[in-house]
C-alpha cells in the first residue's frame, strides 16, 4: 500500500511539497481553506527581482501538482489533528477523517494588517494604500487615487509591521525592501511623469539580483531614496497625504505632501497557522512563526513526530527560498517514511 501524506496549505510551499512527494510515489492529500490554490501568488502581479508574471510560477506549480497522486481538498478547514501511533488523523470541517503517515504544515504567512499602525492612516485617509492594494492596481493596469485620478507624487514606507517593537514584530520581513524597489519601478513604468520616494530605515537587498534592481531603480527610473522612518501621516483638505519624517542623512526633519502613500506591509505568522499550532500542539518561536528544531539543519522539523514544516510558516522567505524549503521538507518526509 502506498504511503499517504497530508499537506496543509496549497500556496507556493504546499504545492511544491505535494508535487515533490507525489513524484516519489507517495499519495498526497492537499488541504486548502481557500477555494483557490496558489495562496499569495493570486494577489501579486509581478515578482521580484526579474518582474515575471506571478501566473507563470503558479502555472508551473499547478501543472506540477495536477496528477492522480494528489487529492486536492479546497475550501476546507481542519477541525482536529490527532497524532497517534498509527499516524496522523485529521478531521476536516466536512466531518471527513483522513489518516496519513506524515503531515506537512505549509500554512504560509499573513500580510501585516496595516491599520494597526494607526499613525499612517490606512483605512482612515483616502489615499493611503498597502503594497497588496498596489499589486491589484498593477494587475488592472491602472494606478489611481480615491478620486480616480493618477497620482503624481508617491511615497513608499518601508518596514510597516516589521522591525517594530510597537506592534510586537522585532524581525525583518526581508521582502519589503525589494518589493518597494520593484513597485517603485513599476509605478514609474506606468506613470512616467510621477515622482516616487522610498522611506527606509535600512535597505536590505540581500537576495540574488536585489542590489542590481536597487541600482536600476536609481539609475534608470530615478526613484528617490530617503533614509528615515515615517512617524506619522496627516491629510489635508485636498485629500493629499502629508508625511512627517526625518531625513536622517541630511539631519533635518522633512515634511512632504504626497498624492499617494503606499505601506510595505510585513509578514506575520498566519492566523491559519496559529490554529493548526493549537490543534497539533506545535510550538511557536519568538517571532510567533513555527519553531523549528534547529535553525541550521532542522528547519523543516517540528517538535512533534511525523509533522514537518514547509515555507513561510517558519520564517519570512521569498519564493525561491520557499520552493527550496518545500523540496527539503519533501526529502525529510521521504526519509522519515523510509525509516519508519
Amino acid at each position: 500500500m502506498n504511503k499517504h501524506v497530508i499537506v496543509i496549505g496549497a500556496g507556493v510551499a504546499g504545492l511544491e511539497a505535494a508535487g515533490q512527494l507525489s513524484r516519489a510515489g507517495i499519495d498526497v492529500s492537499l488541504i486548502e481553506r481557500e477555494k483557490m490554490t496558489g495562496g499569495h501568488l493570486n494577489d501579486w502581479f509581478k515578482l521580484f527581482p526579474d518582474r515575471r508574471d506571478s501566473r507563470e510560477v503558479k502555472d508551473y506549480l499547478e501543472k506540477f501538482t495536477n496528477n492522480d497522486g494528489i487529492k486536492l481538498l479546497a475550501g476546507i478547514e481542519i477541525e482536529k489533528i490527532i497524532n497517534g501511533r498509527g499516524g496522523v488523523k485529521v478531521t476536516t470541517s466536512e466531518g471527513k477523517e483522513l489518516i496519513a503517515d506524515a503531515l506537512i504544515v505549509a500554512t504560509g504567512f499573513d500580510l501585516f494588517r496595516s491599520s494597526r499602525k494607526e499613525e499612517y492612516g490606512y483605512e482612515i485617509y483616502d489615499n493611503v494604500y498597502t503594497s497588496a492594494d498596489l499589486e491589484k492596481m498593477f494587475r488592472k493596469g491602472k494606478i489611481s487615487l480615491h478620486n480616480g485620478k493618477s497620482p503624481e507624487t508617491i511615497g513608499i514606507v518601508h518596514c510597516v509591521g516589521s522591525r517594530d517593537e510597537k506592534v510586537g514584530n522585532l524581525y525583518c520581513s526581508k521582502l519589503c525592501c525589494v518589493t518597494a524597489v520593484k513597485q517603485a519601478i513599476e509605478i514609474r513604468e506606468h506613470l512616467p511623469e510621477s515622482k516616487v520616494f522610498c522611506f527606509y530605515m535600512d535597505m536590505r537587498m540581500g537576495g540574488a539580483m536585489y542590489e542590481e534592481l536597487y541600482r536600476e531603480a536609481q539609475e534608470k527610473w530615478g526613484v528617490n531614496f530617503i533614509r528615515g522612518k515615517v512617524s506619522e501621516a496627516g491629510e489635508d483638505i485636498n485629500n493629499k497625504v502629508i508625511i512627517k519624517v526625518e531625513d536622517t542623512l541630511a539631519g533635518r526633519p522633512l515634511k512632504m505632501e504626497l498624492d499617494m502613500l503606499v505601506l510595505m506591509a510585513g509578514m506575520e505568522m498566519s492566523e491559519g497557522g496559529r490554529k493548526i499550532a493549537g490543534l497539533a500542539g506545535l510550538n511557536a518561536g519568538e517571532n510567533r512563526f513555527f519553531a523549528v528544531t534547529d535553525q541550521h539543519y532542522g528547519s523543516n522539523r517540528s517538535s512533534v513526530k511525523g509533522i514537518f514544516f514547509a515555507g513561510t510558516c517558519t520564517a519570512p522567505m521569498n519564493i525561491t527560498e520557499t520552493i527550496s524549503h518545500s523540496r527539503a521538507a519533501a526529502t525529510e518526509v521521504i526519509s522519515y517514511l523510509n525509516n519508519k
Binding site: 533614509r227 528615515g228 512617524s231 526625518e246 539631519g251 526633519p253
Partner: peptide, 21 residues
C-alpha cells in the same frame, strides 16, 4: 538604530532645530 522616527514626530522639532536622534 537612528531611524529618526522620534525627530520626525517631535513636538519641539515642529518649532525649532531639535533632533533627539
Amino acid at each position: 538604530i537612528e531611524c529618526g522616527g522620534c525627530s520626525a514626530t517631535c513636538t519641539t522639532g515642529n518649532f525649532t532645530r531639535f533632533s533627539l536622534r
